[in-house]
Amino acid sequence: MTKFIFKRLLEAIPTLLVLITVSFFLMRFAPGNPFSSERSLPPKVKANIEAKYGLDKPVIEQYFNYLKHLVQGDLGPSFKYKDYSVNELVAQALPVSAKIGATAFVLAVFFGVSLGTLAALKQNTWLDYFLMSGAMVGVVIPSFVLAPVLVLIFSIGLKWLPAGGWNGGAVQFMVLPVIGMMMHYISSIARIMRGSMIEVMGSNFIRTARAKGLSMSYIVIHHALRPAILPVVSYLGPAFVGIITGSVVIETIFGLPGIGQLFVNGALNRDYSMVLGLTILVGALTITFNAIVDILYAVIDPKIRY
């Protein structure tokens, strides 16, 4: 297992390097630059600004300078938010996205797995139809529709919950964003879970367990859950990275200071260092969580060994 983890780590380095290189040059090839604005600057003023941020040097030199700083853990200054470095901004935003994302994730897994299992056990009954049509609705309604509707009902109409803001992550500020974010995941998880549970419940070892006279709940918890959850786990790995690095839609609608907003504004403003920094962050997290999923496989399924 240690050897496996070590191997994955080594593989991650070239993957990240390719990612950084491609993103670096793609950003530079995009039209405009961080300092192009509607009021065009006199050439000398522009040159002064570019000199300050090292943009006057050849691109290839900028690239190696970037790598040099990156090795030291420095993601550089933000070109847009001039009073902050990318490290500071990410350090401020990541906990926000992670807190909302992790909460939504845990709830989505809990409800998704429970509801999916329930639907599978009551296959083709009204409960199954009810849950699955609910899940279908959850999958097709995008968060940019769901979130404003939640705001309309609970903030403007009933005035129970705030329509936005973060306030250090106080519970009442998290309720609507978390709901807005998790509905889609609950639905997807429930649908995957139902399908795989039905398959497992029809297999020979479950029939044997039933023949032994074990109770249904014992069978589900001790025999069926583990094999049935595997497809959900492979779905969750990449989904987890997406969910904790923030949703642009949810963050914009609720005015949350997370990673999603930084990413979009970074791209629109040609904030080179911000976009690169976040790409590296998301890339590194994706690699990490894919590795974790592989390890989880081995834990859950005894047939898989590394």
Binding site: P148, S155, I156, A163, T252, G255
Partner: peptide, 18 residues
Amino acid sequence: YLPLQSQNAEMNRFLADE
């Protein structure tokens, strides 16, 4: 000062008295 980029979200915050 709240940096609300979405006009609709801003309108909702206003209507929610925030």
